[in-house]
Design a binder for these strands. Structure first.
Length: 815
RNA sequence: GGGCCCGUGGCUCAGGGGUUAGAGCACUCGGUUCACAUCCGAGAGGCCGAUGGUUCGAAUCCAUCCGGGCCCACCA
């Protein structure tokens, strides 16, 4: 009747762990340090199943490492600055940062963070995560700001960071520059307009474009050098429909098959324009202002001050009236948009800060080779990204809530003024000062750092955390970075760059890359889709955290998986089974059981067999978990626990444990104790609650068959003298099973299976007694079977087992 | 267009040159007073995406193709 009440019990153990601080990092504890560079989730709303998926996979590995004897350093941080947090704040408060006092907006952001952060932490807690609370960090904290700014200044002084007025990818909606990595492609409907230009000889030249509004920004026309149609045009001027005269230049980047084969180069329509302007030293003509409207450089009064799309409409009308549009074609093409707001990205020159990454490509590739990528294939994504980089990393953002670029500019003597490192963290926007050279009031740089700049420093944040005590600054490189494959090009790449620049080596030895969880075919559960219909909190309430965790291990590392509610149910089944198996074990050991000091050789054959299987399983799981293959480890566990232990061994042991005291019973009890304890340990990384529950369980009421679970009382905890199953060592035994015993067990199990099959086929009860079981087979097999016969008779309910010598194995059953 | 991944029973996934290809769910049949109906047993169900090739042997390696996904490029 009594069963496991996960709603209550999971919470109970979470409180216990938190109260006892079991998982706090202690730099002086035993064991080799295993430091994990956990992803700090961005506070941008709520956590979704996608987070749970990848975090759970890493948490399992972490918990296993602790049991494997490492001094685990498993932190959790929160990334609470930058655009996502600003967007959340805008939504929550209705404040528009462009029209709000900086101070007010920053304060509002802090308030919103304070509201949301506990929810994040709670979910991790309710998932049973065993992280070190004393290692927590916030990326907006003064310490991290200081680290980030100090790194900026150091790299600036070394020339690794530079400032340049350069065309950058720019989001007019968010009014900030963005990095290449934040741009995403979207298929958009558009129109290809054929514009008529005039050649010097008065003839028409058709140029096709989807961006007619950029016509006022034209700086040249390009054709392909081998294009016979335009060969004579090269070096000549042509006149745009608006009357601008520009040169025609030949360049191989032109695709003669696209449009008319002649392209207008405007500043800036795309990255090819940037390339051409740089290559041919063309003069820029910028007509888009930072807020995404057309500025006066366009020289067409009707469109000045209009947005890009408005300007396009107006200008198309105007050109049509003039007869300058010869045909249009609706097309669908992909447009680079800002991943956060889906606004098409513009290219606008701005003074920006860049970190040199192009110059370090070779080193970065070499550094990538020194890291153990799991799955190994993921390294290829990193390499491809590095090889394909075209721009240095733009690390400044014209935003508000972030770590400020620690720089002042002097409007008078034009010097750049840097704060002293003792003054960090500093916000030049809020701390005014005078120029040390000319005493004028300085201007703040006004930019904040790309959040990835700070995120890329998480290995350093962890390495320099005060809780490291004597190990502070000595943890580099860390053992493991777990992360999703979608941020290889950002987080992994930038972290590696920072590692090379600051430490001349990669920040970690291993990197495990998780896949995505998909709600159904093609639909990614993420911030963008809102997490689909499944909320982690609801699933925990309905099925338990352990069951949800179970479902999160349904696919191999790195693979995207479809979420199936059925898998959670299966997890719940496993939990129930663990509970009942534990109940059986504990009741058959008795209230004050202490395992006898038996040697392996003193056990019955089946006892030896199951303990040997447990040992093999623990080894196999360890082998898998060492390679981050949690899924394969879990499969190995289930096969052992469910099939070998429950279906076979528990049935086999019943006769002996139910029977009178004696050697057989003592051995069975010993085996139940150690077998089930090993099971609890092996499943502990995966299912933290039920394993702890059973570890602390004791007989509360022998008459009612009721178990209770409490620290200090548990049958296993009491004997093992360790306060949590999660602090126990991974099962490690050194049993040897003789070859004759191994083959005897195999044969005995085959016989059991055969008997069951026969009874089942004849539609008989499995508990039906048999008067005789006669086995034909080799004499040697019969010899091997000897030690198993007693248990074999009891589990098959056979009164008598006979043997006849024969070449071929067969079985006869007599009722 | 380039790169990568995936395509295995109805579903979600293991396996990944060598005996009759696995698991769970779902399905069928049967059993079960005493750890567990959140159980046990048995069964049915698969030309391992297609076609070629390498090999004594291919689900597994190679090539091509088809289908799905991710990333990147193109964005005139």
């Amino acid at each position: 009747m009594s069963s496991y009440q996960f709603q209550r019990r999971e919470n109970y153990w979470q409180s216990y762990w938190q109260k006892e601080k079991f998982f706090h990092f202690n730099p002086k504890a035993k064991g080799k340090i295993y430091a994990i560079d956990t992803p700090p989730p961005t506070i941008s709303g709520r956590l979704h199943l996608g987070h749970v998926f990848s975090y759970t996979q890493a948490e399992i590995i972490a918990a296993y490492r602790r049991m494997a004897g490492f001094n685990l350093r498993y932190p959790l941080g929160f990334d609470n600055n930058g655009l996502p947090t600003e967007k959340l704040t805008e939504k929550e408060t209705g404040l528009n940062p462009h029209q709000t006092k900086l101070k007010t907006f920053i304060k509002a952001c802090s308030t919103v963070i304070a509201q949301y952060q506990p929810g994040y932490k709670n979910l991790f807690r309710h998932l049973g995560f065993r992280w070190a609370e004393n290692l927590e960090y916030l990326t907006i904290s003064p310490e991290v700001q200081k680290l980030s700014q100090a790194t900026f200044l150091k790299l600036y002084r070394r020339g690794e960071i530079y400032r340049q007025n350069s065309p950058v990818l720019y989001c007019p909606q968010c009014q900030t520059s963005v990095a290449q990595a934040e741009v995403e492609d979207r298929e958009r409907k558009s129109v290809f307009y054929n514009l008529t230009f005039r050649r010097q000889n008065g003839k028409e030249l058709i140029i096709a474009t989807t961006r007619p509004e950029l016509l006022p920004a034209i700086v040249a026309v390009f054709v392909h050098p081998d294009d016979k149609r335009y060969r004579r045009l090269e070096g000549q001027s042509v006149t745009s429909p608006l009357g601008d005269r520009v040169k025609v230049i030949a360049n191989a980047k032109v695709d003669p098959k696209k449009g008319s084969g002649a392209v207008m180069c405007c500043t800036y329509g795309d990255s090819t324009d940037v390339y051409w302007v740089k290559t041919y030293h063309l003069k820029e003509n910028i007509i888009i202002a930072n807020d995404g409207t057309i500025n006066e450089n366009a020289k067409i009064p009707e469109i000045i001050g209009k947005t890009i799309s408005e300007a396009r409409k107006i200008l198309v009308e105007k050109l049509k009236k003039k007869g300058a549009i010869k045909g249009e074609k609706a097309i669908s093409h992909s447009v680079g948009v800002h991943e956060r707001c889906s606004t098409p990205i513009e290219i606008i020159p701005q003074p920006q800060w860049f970190a040199k990454i192009l110059a370090h490509r070779q080193e970065m590739l070499r550094a990538g080779d020194k890291i153990n990528w799991q799955p190994a294939k993921m390294q290829r994504r990193y390499q491809d990204w590095i090889k394909g980089l075209k721009w240095d990393w733009c690390i400044s953002r014209g935003r508000f809530f972030g770590i400020p670029v620690p720089v002042y500019h002097c409007p008078h003597c034009h010097k750049i003024v840097l704060p002293d490192s003792k003054e960090l963290p500093i916000d030049p926007r809020q701390q005014r000062r005078r120029c040390p050279y000319c005493n004028h009031w300085l201007q703040a740089d006004g930019n904040v750092l790309d959040t990835w700049f700070t995120s890329a420093l998480t290995p350093d944040i962890n390495n320099r955390h005060p809780a490291n005590g004597p190990l502070r600054g000595k943890l580099y490189p860390l053992a493991l970075r777990p992360q999703g494959h979608d941020i290889i090009r950002t987080w992994a790449t930038y972290s590696l760059l920072m590692g090379l620049l600051n430490h001349r080596r990669p920040p970690w030895k291993n990197i495990m890359i998780s896949g995505h969880i998909l709600a159904k075919k093609g639909e990614k559960i993420s911030k963008k889709t809102g997490g689909g219909q499944y909320r982690p909190e609801d699933l925990i309430a309905r099925y338990s955290a352990d069951a949800l965790r179970y479902a999160m291990t349904g696919a191999s590392l790195g693979l995207d998986a479809y979420f199936e509610e059925k898998e959670i149910k299966q997890g719940l089944r496993l939990i129930t089974k663990l509970y009942h198996a534990g109940k059986f074990v504990i009741f058959n050991l008795g209230g004050d059981y202490q395992p006898a000091a038996l040697k392996f050789s003193q056990l019955e054959a089946f006892d030896q067999w199951i303990l040997f299987q447990a040992q093999q399983t623990a080894q196999l799981m360890a082998k898998y978990l060492d390679k981050f293959r949690y899924h394969q480890a879990l499969i190995a566990f289930e096969k052992f626990f469910w099939h070998n232990f429950c279906d076979n061994y528990l049935e086999i042991s019943k006769e002996r444990v139910y029977g009178p005291d004696g050697r057989g019973k003592t051995a069975a009890q010993f085996t139940l104790y150690h077998g089930y304890l090993a099971i609890l340990k092996m499943i502990a990384p995966f299912l933290p609650h039920i394993s702890e529950e059973m570890y602390h369980s004791f007989i509360a009421s022998p008459e009612k068959g009721r178990l209770e679970s409490r620290p200090g009382r548990g049958l296993f905890a009491r004997n093992e003298k360790i306060a949590s199953v999660h602090l126990t060592p991974w099962p490690k035994t050194n049993y040897r099973l003789a070859a004759s015993k191994a083959s005897g067990a195999e044969l005995a199990l085959a016989i059991i299976e055969k008997v069951r099959a026969t009874k089942s086929r004849r539609q008989l009860s499995l508990s039906l007694p048999l008067s005789q079981l006669s086995i034909r087979g080799l004499n040697s097999d019969w010899q091997n079977l000897q030690p198993f016969l007693k248990d074999l008779a009891s589990v098959t309910k056979s009164r008598q087992i006979l043997h006849r010598s024969a070449q071929k194995f067969s079985l006869t059953i007599r009722l």
